[in-house]
C-alpha cells in the first residue's frame, strides 16, 4: 500500500532530548536537551509527557501558531495504553488520534496526517512521538537501578520527544510518498536482539515501496532505517541481498547515528519511537533544507513486543513504515 502526495509538507519540526542524546554526535542539532532524566518532574512517565509538551511548544513557536490553530494531533509512544501521548494531548485539547506501532509510530503518525491533508479533510496536523529510557526500562525490562548485564546486541532506548508540523504551505521538506508496512514474523524470540526482529520488516517495506513506485534503490540519496542497531544494520544488508537481490549501499541507521557507540554505554545503539525522528527531524531536516541531501526514504521499524507473549515463548512480530522525503526545489 503506497501513496503519493502532491501537496503535503513537513513544514517544521522540533526535538527535545535527554543527556545521552545531547552528548552524542548529533547533540548540536537538537532544539532542547535536559541534563536530568526526570525533566523537572517526579516520575519517569511524566518526564516523557514533558518531553512531548516541550516539543509541541517549540514547534508551535517556530511556526508562529497557537494550540488552537491545530486541526489534529496524532501521537504515539511505547508506554502501556500510549499514556505519554494521551496525557500530553490532555493539555493540548485538540482532536486527537493515539497510534501504536512501537518504534515505527513516528512514521505512522506522518502517514495518517499526510493522507488526511492530501484529501483535504484537515489543513494541518501536529505529529508527536516520544520515548524515555527509564520509563521503557521500567515497563519492558528491569528496574532502572538494577545493573544485571545485558547482551551486546541490546539497544539503548533514546530519551526524546519530537513534534512535526504538517501542512500545505511550501516550506521545510516535501512529503512525496509513503508505504504502509506489513507485520512480519521471522520467528526471532530474543528480546535483547531487536535488530534481528525488525530487519526483515524493514527489508520488506523497502522492497514493496520500490516495487510499487517502480524505482531503483539508487533513486534515493539515503535510506534511513529507524533503530536496527549496529548488528541489525548488517543483517538488513545481507537480507536485502539474499532475498531481493538489492545492494544496499546508500543506507544508514538512526540507532548508529544518534550515539557514539565507542564512548557511550549504549551497546548496539539507540532505539525507541523517538530514535528515528530525533535524527530525521534535526540533522536530516536541516541537511534537506540546505539541499545537501535531496531524497531520503525514512523507514521506521517497530518490534511489536509484549512481555507476556515473549514469556509465553511466542516470537516477536515486527513492522516498518516508510515515508519518502524530498528537499523543496
Amino acid at each position: 500500500m503506497t501513496f503519493k502526495y502532491n501537496n503535503v509538507y513537513l513544514e517544521n519540526t522540533s526535538t527535545v532530548t535527554g543527556p545521552y542524546e545531547k552528548n552524542g554526535p548529533l547533540g548540536n542539532f537538537f532544539d532542547k536537551s535536559y541534563d536530568d532524566l526526570y525533566c523537572g518532574n517526579k516520575t519517569w512517565e511524566y518526564a516523557e509527557v514533558q518531553l512531548i509538551l516541550d516539543s509541541i511548544d517549540l514547534v508551535l513557536k517556530k511556526q508562529n501558531k497557537t494550540k488552537n490553530d491545530i486541526d489534529l494531533h496524532i501521537s504515539g509512544d511505547l508506554l502501556n495504553q500510549t499514556v505519554a501521548s494521551n496525557y500530553a494531548s490532555a493539555q493540548i485539547k485538540r482532536p486527537f488520534l493515539g497510534v501504536y506501532s512501537a518504534c515505527a509510530s513516528s512514521v505512522e503518525t506522518l502517514i495518517i496526517g499526510a493522507n488526511m491533508i492530501e484529501s483535504n479533510q484537515i489543513k494541518n496536523c501536529l505529529c508527536t512521538t516520544s520515548s524515555h529510557n527509564n520509563s521503557a526500562e521500567k515497563q519492558f525490562r528491569y528496574p532502572v537501578e538494577y545493573g544485571g548485564p545485558k547482551p551486546i546486541t541490546t539497544t539503548f532506548t533514546t530519551t526524546g520527544g519530537v513534534a512535526a508540523y504538517l501542512g500545505r504551505e511550501k516550506k521545510g521538506v516535501r512529503i512525496e510518498s509513503a508505504t504502509i508496512g506489513i507485520v512480519n514474523d521471522y520467528g526471532i524470540k530474543d528480546v535483547f536482539h531487536m535488530g534481528a526482529v525488525m530487519a526483515p520488516a524493514a527489508a520488506d517495506t523497502i522492497y514493496r515501496h520500490l516495487k510499487d513506485l517502480k524505482r531503483d534503490i539508487n533513486y534515493y540519496d539515503m535510506i534511513l532505517t529507524g533503530d536496527l542497531g549496529i548488528y541489525g544494520k548488517d543483517i538488513l544488508k545481507d537480507f536485502m541481498k539474499e532475498e531481493y537481490n538489492i545492494e544496499l549501499n546508500n543506507h544508514d541507521d538512526a540507532a548508529c547515528m544518534i550515539f557514539n557507540r565507542d564512548k557511550q554505554p549504549v551497546l548496539a545503539g539507540g532505539s525507541g519511537p523517538a530514535c528515528a525522528p530525533l535524527v530525521t527531524y534535526s540533522y536530516i531536516f536541516e541537511k534537506m533544507k540546505e539541499k545537501q541531501i535531496s531524497k531520503v526514504l525514512l523507514v521506521a521499524t517497530g518490534a511489536l513486543m509484549n512481555p507476556s507473549m515473549t514469556n509465553e515463548k511466542e516470537a516477536i512480530p515486527s513492522i516498518a513504515h516508510a515515508i519518502s522525503l524530498e528537499a523543496i526545489k
Binding site: P151, I152, G187, H193, A196, D238, F239, E242
Partner: peptide
Amino acid sequence: YQKLVDKNTPKE
C-alpha cells in the same frame, strides 16, 4: 533467517 542472524551476531 536464523542462520543469517547468527552470522551477523558476535559472540559474548
